[in-house]
Amino acid sequence: MNSSEKNDATAPCEFMDNLNLLRQTYFFSSFPLETLKVIAYLCAREKFKKGLALFNQNEDDGQAFLVIDGKARLEREDDGKMTVIRECHAGEFLGGLTLLGGRHRLFSLIAVEDTTCLIIHREKFTKAIKQFPDIMPKILKAVVDNISTWEERFLTERAEECGGCLEKLGVSLV
């Protein structure tokens, strides 16, 4: 067994906390401990003061965020008009897809109060993943499951409210 699993020599440390946080996140839930330790190690905690942007629409910051503490607002600007999508709270994980490939953000995330996040950068993530070739299919499966579940839930719960937008659905068919 690895020493970290019967960690008696060390006082509680940030690395251990990060590891536990990641274990509870869907995206990482299928990772073997060996891999997750590396990811937890490569993460960084960052504090965003109220009003600061965690990421901005149209930019590719290449980071995934796990909100540890505080609150942030997801919003989108279209032709000068700002729409608030929703609020993100502690425990929420944003940006799994960002880790897999570079695309500009469709939303901005703004700290509504002082917010602490666990951040992992795509570049570090990619290098870590390369060390564990078996992991990619597991990540893809977690993502596919998540997208399908989302759409399934939307269809059963919200389809009636949707009206004309139904014909645009089918993300899980991509």
């Binding site: 690895n2 060996e34 190690y41 570090k124 060390q131």
Partner: peptide, 13 residues
């Protein structure tokens, strides 16, 4: 060593 011991060395790690 537990975290990095089995990785191929790369400056990022």
């Amino acid at each position: 060593v537990d975290i990095l011991g089995n990785l191929t060395p790369d400056a990022v790690f």
